[in-house]
């Protein structure tokens, strides 16, 4: 597995405020990497450093083996970027803006441009000043997908799109991955992350707090267990069991709790001693997973 994007001990200060704190992360080539984290965690800062729009205070980053600062020009020929806040020239039409961006990029696919304009249902004859946020994002997305690039860097590209357009976006994202492109996708939309990302990294206060495939993250996290038992179980002493609720039901007791993977054996033994009748367990939903990581931001 080769690494397409390597970020090494990246620190970025805005005056006295530290936005990135020795951030290290690696995106394998040919994968879609979901870059997640609460607002203000440093996602946009990281992506803008990769594009050489911001200069790191210390540390370095490479994309496709090229230094993002020193080799910016040759690198930019191989990257397509969608900024988080798409601003366009008010006096140009959307079609003109797309053509400007493609021409500046160099290599592009005209046929694909037309297909994308069609697929995203964008009216290219409207002036950019009249576009909504979503339409401006579409312009940037068309210009990114129609460019011949090995790496796509997308900063919350669907925050203004409707569900239908979001589906179009996902289709093109998966197609890009299937063509062997690497994608770094900052996103808040869990469905999008779940259906498109091979791997996610979670950033909080400028540091990477977790990274792995979604399955790996789930396995690191607590499962929810529901059981019915004959008499009150003794679960208080088991480390790794939390949010315990026990209530009388159907002549016995209903038990609900969360359990960390390493405590599962102890929990099952205790439930067995309490005369377990039914048992079900489920992995955390994505939402629960992220809330856990995001929430911890408040209490570091």
């Amino acid at each position: 597995m080769t690494t397409a994007i390597a970020v090494d001990e990246l620190t970025k200060d805005y005056g006295r405020r530290r936005a990135l704190d020795r951030l290290t992360l690696a995106v394998p080539a040919g994968e879609v990497y979901g870059f997640l984290g609460p607002n203000g965690a440093g996602k946009t800062t990281t992506l803008r450093i990769l594009l050489d729009l911001l200069r790191p205070t210390s540390g370095r980053a490479t994309v496709l083996g090229l230094d993002v600062q020193r080799d910016a020009l040759p690198l930019h020929r191989r990257i397509a970027y969608v900024p988080g806040d798409v601003a366009l020239w008010p006096q140009l039409t959307g079609g003109q803006a797309i053509d400007v961006l493609l021409a500046l990029h160099g290599r592009s696919d005209q046929k694909r441009r037309e297909e994308l304009v069609e697929a995203f249902q964008l009216d290219p004859t409207v002036r950019c000043r009249a576009y909504s946020t979503g339409n401006r994002q579409k312009v940037a997305l068309v210009a990114a997908f129609a460019a011949e690039a090995d790496v796509l860097i997308l900063d919350e590209p669907t925050s203004g799109l409707d569900p239908l357009m979001e589906a179009v976006f996902r289709r093109h994202l998966v197609a890009a991955r299937d063509e062997g492109r690497t994608v770094l996708l900052s996103s808040h939309i869990l469905g999008e992350v779940e259906t498109t990302c091979d791997r996610v990294g979670i950033i909080r206060a400028g540091r990477l707090v977790e990274t792995g495939t979604l399955d790996e993250l789930r396995h690191l996290s607590e499962y929810t267990v529901d059981a019915e038992v004959g008499h009150p179980p003794e679960l208080g002493g088991i480390a790794g069991v939390s949010d315990l609720v026990v209530a009388p039901a159907n002549g016995g007791y209903r038990v609900r709790c969360r359990v960390r993977p390493e405590a599962t054996a102890d929990l099952l033994a205790a439930l067995a001693r309490a005369g377990v009748r039914t048992l079900s367990s489920r992995p955390p939903t994505l939402e629960e997973l992220f809330l856990r990581y995001y929430d911890a931001a408040e209490t570091p």
């Binding site: 020009l73 930019h76 990257i79 900024p83 806040d85 798409v86 601003a87 961006l101």
Partner: peptide, 12 residues
């Protein structure tokens, strides 16, 4: 922010 998409392309 209109400079962002331009400078993210191969424009020195």
């Amino acid at each position: 922010g209109r400079a962002d998409p331009v400078l993210a392309r191969p424009v020195a």
